[in-house]
């Protein structure tokens, strides 16, 4: 628990990076925005836990929208059966694992969690 508390505290100052599978082509920021606001399903976006610091920061800085707006957008997609919101995973390690295993997956993690199993396509300061 203490370790987890430290890990969460670290996220605040840290840069967020958007990652893809090693086999995947690079993605533009516009493509990433489209995936996370439900305008495209060319790739499979993977989310962190709604309301977590990294989640809030990612949406604010990359899509320009806050958590409530994101929920509003996906509720419209959900209740017209045009898709479901990105699957939420508990932490960056889980996101990294999912992205490493799926050539179509896109995720976002803290910069410090980057390793050779995935590649970075966008840095968010």
């Amino acid at each position: 628990m203490i370790l987890m508390a430290f890990a969460v505290a670290d996220v605040r100052a840290e840069e967020i990076v958007v990652i893809v599978n090693l086999a995947a082509a690079p993605l533009s920021k516009e493509q990433i925005v489209d995936l996370y606001v439900g305008r495209s399903d060319d790739y499979t976006p993977i989310d962190q836990t709604a309301g977590s610091r990294i989640y809030v920061e990612f949406y604010k800085k990359v899509t320009g929208r806050d958590s409530a707006q994101i929920k509003e957008i996906w509720s419209r997609i959900l209740f017209t059966d045009r898709g479901i919101a990105p699957k939420q995973l508990p932490d960056s390690a889980a996101v990294k694992k999912a992205v490493a295993a799926n050539p179509k997956a896109v995720g976002y993690i803290e910069k410090s969690a980057v390793d050779a199993s995935i590649k970075v396509v966008l840095s968010v300061d």
């Binding site: 509720s75 419209r76 209740f79």
Partner: peptide, 17 residues
């Protein structure tokens, strides 16, 4: 399916959206 005739018609009863 709900008819998509106008913008928002297919979620007009989902107030949250």
């Amino acid at each position: 399916m709900v008819l998509p005739t106008y913008e928002y018609s297919d979620t007009q009863y989902v107030g949250y959206s």
